[in-house]
Design a protein around this nucleic acid. Structure first.
Lengths: 200, 200
DNA sequence: AAACTATTTTGACAGTGTCAAGATAAGCCT
DNA sequence: AGGCTTATCTTGACACTGTCAAAATAGTTT
């Protein structure tokens, strides 16, 4: 943590901020090391002293993305409602975040995602998972928490990706379809939980 | 359709084949127009007369990917089992295809997917959708077919992407988890269908 | 045979990631 | 204060990329 008040001040975080600006303004394809350097106003090779390569910069961007992501999901935790309903709300918030920050979401989860896993990134990702896993446990019990969490995550992630990639063909209101999907899913969870309780 | 037996013979399809070879051997990052030209043994600019840009070549690769994809899902249609169970089998086949052809799947559905939509590509995509939509209709009825199809697609697509991107944290057997997910999902569909029938 | 067209090559340009060497500035030590 | 060390940044270079324009080549047509 010794990147402060040298030539630039704090180039590292400035570069991450520039990356986000470029991401929203020009899209992922325009997000290059040199573009970030230009945006900040430093020479083209300056970023290499803070990020060994482009993947490391993307990892840093993804990390801050995950931190905001967790905050967005956190807002659902406050609501005083039934656990299963809260899980559904969390799913809706998940997709809303993805649609509100499409380019950032692509960096976080994209197939061209950085295989470089920074400490910061892995902890941020773990926090997001814990969020969902906890909500699943409260909604379906500890035994089913793992499968329910992966199921919910798969649904919302898949939905977000397919909508973003425009892979959903003759469909009208995708938000409405998401709600219906989550309703069916909730029914499934209810059925499984009920069946599980009936056994004992 | 006039690209035959000139200098090379059929450079267009040769390039698509070369693209698949590079994709499996060296990964998506190494898939460039020039690399394809090298692989085939033509000059670096030769591909431009068959694909206006890299995105168009990727679209062609994605198209053949979707065609094979539909074939893979088709094999589940033969099985003489209950429609809902067949839908689950189709979901498993879906994920199996994605895991067997990770790089190809990335080109087909990746976030860096070509926004160029060729005629060949869009028809191939539509065929895949029809496949899933039809199976959903048989399993859950026509009324629910749309929401069920999007739900199933979201689940399997999301699962495949998350596993491929190694975003699933402390999880053991992902295949087992997929089966559990699809079971919960089937319960939900059953419940919704039963509820729907009870209404009338 | 000659004209024409489709295909491919050659050469060029701007842009990229990344490395190596030099320049600059901040902190530290005596 | 003055010099040394280290962190930071710039400059210049290289190989690679996509893409364009012009030339060359080979097949088709007349």
């Amino acid at each position: 943590m010794s990147e402060k008040n040298y030539h630039h001040g704090d180039l590292r975080t400035a570069l991450v901020q520039a990356a986000r600006t470029i991401l929203e303004r020009d899209g992922l394809a325009a997000l290059t090391l040199r573009a970030c350097a230009r945006e900040v106003g430093v020479s083209h090779a300056a970023p290499l002293h803070h990020f060994r390569n482009l993947a490391e910069l993307l990892a840093a961007v993804a990390a801050v993305g995950f931190e905001e992501f967790v905050k967005a999901l956190d807002q659902c935790s406050d609501i005083q409602i039934e656990p299963l309903e809260r899980l559904v709300e969390m799913g809706i918030a998940y997709v809303a975040f993805a649609q509100a920050n499409p380019a950032l979401y692509r960096v976080m989860f994209g197939s061209d995602r950085p295989n470089v896993v920074t400490e910061q990134l892995s902890t941020a990702m773990r926090a997001a998972w814990e969020q969902l896993h906890g909500a699943s446990a409260r909604a379906a019990g500890d035994e089913r928490s793992l499968s329910v969490a992966t199921l919910v995550w798969s649904v919302v992630h898949g939905h977000a990706m397919l909508v973003a990639a425009q892979c959903m063909p003759p469909i009208g209101d995708t938000d409405e379809l998401l709600k219906q999907s989550l309703e069916i899913l909730a029914s499934g969870i209810r059925a499984v939980v009920a069946n599980n309780e009936a056994k004992f």
